[in-house]
Design a protein around this nucleic acid. Structure first.
Lengths: 170, 170
DNA sequence: GCCAACCGCTTGCAAAATGCAAGCGGTTCT
DNA sequence: AGAACCGCTTGCATTTTGCAAGCGGTTGGC
């Protein structure tokens, strides 16, 4: 996505950076799955991104300022990717997209529980979540409450409910 | 964008439908520019979509239920494209994306004035706008106030301001 | 100290999507 | 009658994607 200079419209400029099938998936996994290493993003993804595509997207997200990269002190080869303020600010976009998706598309219950919580919590909850992301990815102070824990717990419980339900019918 | 069956995550499913560089551009022009015919979408776009891409995107948006198509009674060759409730429901997504874009990307002032108004108005304004879209695209009753007029007027005034400013420096 | 496992990331190649220009059969306007 | 316009398709070159293998280096267990 080079400098095409198509128009100064905010929607268009956003799409020039994020308008493909993988960029937002990578950011989603960093944001909601707290995946920070290349391998984590590569192998723990539900959608199975290819390694060359992941490398390319990370490079472009870096160039565009959505994420940053630093070396992992505990492992000379590992890099740690973090969200920048620009990346963290996408929380409302994710919340809006996820809410739309869960209302109109064939989502699975366990994958949409987090979207529901974000939709119900509204901007107040989003701001709390963004504060937590600033703690996890930038050097902001730790908030008292962990929204990410709440979301992850709710997701795990939904997965467990599904597992039990499937075990019963088997 | 065939049935890849990658995951039931709302974000992923949304991206499988809208995750490319043009689908949301087309919907944006229908929604905010009230462009309803093929030629209007083709030639009045600031970004210059190619005709084969436009045809393909309209087909896919139709298949996915975001828009509908009917014949234009006044012209046998023309089709009129309309947003469905599913398409109209993207208003909060557009508002979030536009707000993000105007804060972090090099938008031009006249192109971001509508994003500002939507951000300031919040969900209350979005709902009014969606009601108006239901009037314009579905068969809902006409609302008392036209948000689209407000947005368009603000945009035109911003363009005019820019024109005057440029004329002064010339 | 050795070796298997893992690290981020690259390479080569086939398949698909995109971008561009021209054009088609038909309709409408003058 | 002729020009302009209608939605949309075609052919073709370029770019992007997807997949599998692999590279040089690091780490951890024995």
């Amino acid at each position: 996505m080079k400098e095409t200079g198509r128009s100064g419209c905010p929607i268009n400029l956003t799409l020039e950076i994020l308008g493909d099938r993988w960029s937002l998936i990578v950011l989603r996994d960093m944001m909601f799955g707290n995946r920070r290493h290349f391998r984590e993003l590569l192998s723990k993804s539900d959608e199975g991104i290819a390694s060359n595509i992941l490398a390319d997207r990370l490079k472009r997200l870096l160039e565009n300022g959505l994420i940053s990269r630093r070396d992992d002190a505990s492992h000379k080869q590992k890099g740690i990717y973090s969200l920048t303020e620009m990346g963290i600010s996408l929380v409302p976009v994710f919340a809006a997209m996820a809410d739309w998706g869960r209302r109109f598309l064939p989502v699975t219950p366990e994958m949409s529980i987090r979207a529901e919580i974000l939709a119900e919590g509204g901007p107040v909850l989003w701001r709390k979540f963004m504060d937590e992301l600033r703690f996890l990815h930038l050097d902001a102070p730790r908030p008292t409450q962990s929204i990410l824990d709440d979301l992850t717990t709710a997701y795990r419980e939904a997965v467990e409910r599904k597992r039990v339900a499937e075990a019963e019918t088997a």
